[in-house]
Structures are given as C-alpha cells and as structure tokens.
Amino acid sequence: MSSPTTSEGALAIGEIRTGFVRHSTEVSLEEASAVLRLVPGEQVRHAGRPRAYAVSPAPLTGVDCAVPSARGRRVQGVGTVTSRATITGGRVLQVCSSATLVRSRAGYRLPWSHYLGRPGVVECLGRVDLRDAAAGFAEAEGGTRGIALGSIAEQVMDRVQGSPLLDGRLPLRAPRGSWRWAVEDGEPLFRFTVLRDGTRLVRLAVPGHGAADLLDLVEDLALHDWLLGTVETILGRAGLGSAPPDRTLRHVGPLVGHVLHHWMPAARIRPELVPLWDAVDRVHGLTRQWDALVARVRDQLALDTVAMLAGAAARRDGAAGPG
C-alpha cells in the first residue's frame, strides 16, 4: 500500500466516508478480502485481533483541479489521489481518499507518467500557501475546496458496496458519515469543526508523526463518532421509555445484534497516539455518551422483559382463576 507521507513543507488532506457494509450478516475476513480486492494482483491486508479488520490495496485516481484555499486563491494541482477501503468487524466500511500536496518543481504540467510514479501526491503549479490550503479544506465552511476527494471516496465506496458478494439486505440503515481532515507539519495542532450538514472537519499536526499514522487515528475517531451518532439516531426512533415494547424492540434488536459490540476505541492506532485519542475523547465525551446509551438500552430491555413477564403471569393467573 502506498500511503501519503508528509515531508518537509507538505500537507496531506483527505476525506473519509463511513457506513454499514450492504450485507445481511457480518462478512468474514475471507469475504472482506474478496470484496476489497480493488486493484487486480494486489493483496488485501487483514488482521483478526483485537478485532477483524481488512484494508484494501490503494487504487489511484488522476486529478487536475484547483487546490483548496480559505482565501479564494486559485492554484492548479495535478497528480494522483490514493484511496483505501477498510472493513472493521465485518460490518463497518470506511473509505479514505487522500493526497499529499507539494510544490511542483517544474511549474507546469508534466506527462502523466511523472505523476503515476508518485502515487498519492498532487503537485501544485504555482505559489501555494499550505496553511491556507489546509484551512480551506478542513476548517472554513466557505472558501474553495477544489479537489473533490469526497466524490472519489464516495465512488470507491459505491464500488465496494456494489460487489456481487454482498446481498444488499441491510439489517439497519444509516447515512454515511463524512469527515474532512488535513495533516500538517509543524507545531502541535488539533482543530475540530462540525458543519451544519454533519460533516466533521479536523486539522491536525503532531510532530514526529506522518500522515499515515495520523490517518489511522482520524479513521478510528470517524468510526466511533459515526457509531455513536448512528446509535443515537436509532434510539431516538425507538422512543425508548414511551413507545410500546414491540416498537422499541424492532429498533433496538438490530442495534444489539449488529452495532453495539463494535465500540473499541483506539484499537489499531500507534500506542504513542493513544493519549491524543483519550484527550479528544475527554473533551467530546464520546465514550461517556456511548456508555450512557448502552446502559440505557440494557436497562430498557430489562424493564421490558420484566413488564412482559408480569403480563404473562397475570394472563396465566387470569386463565387459571375464577371459572
């Protein structure tokens, strides 16, 4: 796999999409490997511990587009975008499309063979301010985003979801989660913004860690943030505590069966980055909220069980009673 790395004066940007695999059951590691074979002849990497995880090889997409800018500067970028699809726990599919922006030495567009030799690198033809580009991509709501990494990620995701190995019978539906991130060089930095449509923006710099390490971190954050949002939405529908037990069960059943056991923060990020995960978690309270939701589900199920048992007992007594 070729992953973007930040070298001196470089900026890595990317978009992540998160959703459920379109399949009725969890896919096995073998199935996941077959589904993720996006590049002929290249291997899918996978691991079984601490939970099932498979990563696709990285297909490349050629781009010739505007470079993002918060101040509306117009700079052309040419190169390739690299994508990777992962399946976590046989249920959650994530696609990340990313590129490293560097200044072009030539200053004009070169033949494609030049760019194909630098997978995942987009060369900026003209004077580019990388801080401005990072802000335009992953902080400002306005500005020009230029490079359509989100569309590329969506397309790769559609391709995976369209695999004939997946039966399309989803046990539960959810909108795709959308994250835009920028990894910069320099002083430590973490800026997190949520847009009105729910898109998460994150700007990040951790001295000593390249984009590949930080991508794992951002991907893991995106996964858990999305899981939390999805569970929250579904529990909202279930009308916990107010709706009749069968409605609650209809919504909560699939959650217990397919979602709740996927919570495993920081399962596959570098140990040095775990404190950063924890810090984000402390501020945004992901785990606290998750624990509260899960406890609520269990308590409600217990309560419904008691109510149903009591109802059954009353019916039995009624039948055996007078007459």
């Binding site: 959703g19 459920f20 379109r22 559609d158 979801q161 369209g162 399309g168 989803l170 539906r173 959810a174 909108p175 795709r176």
Partner: peptide, 12 residues
C-alpha cells in the same frame, strides 16, 4: 441505478 442503490443504503 447507482443513485437508487446508494439511497437504499440510507433510506427505508
């Protein structure tokens, strides 16, 4: 077809 398959992923 692509759009409908895509929407089936998130809408009942």
């Amino acid at each position: 077809v692509k759009l409908l398959v895509r929407l089936d992923e998130e809408f009942d």
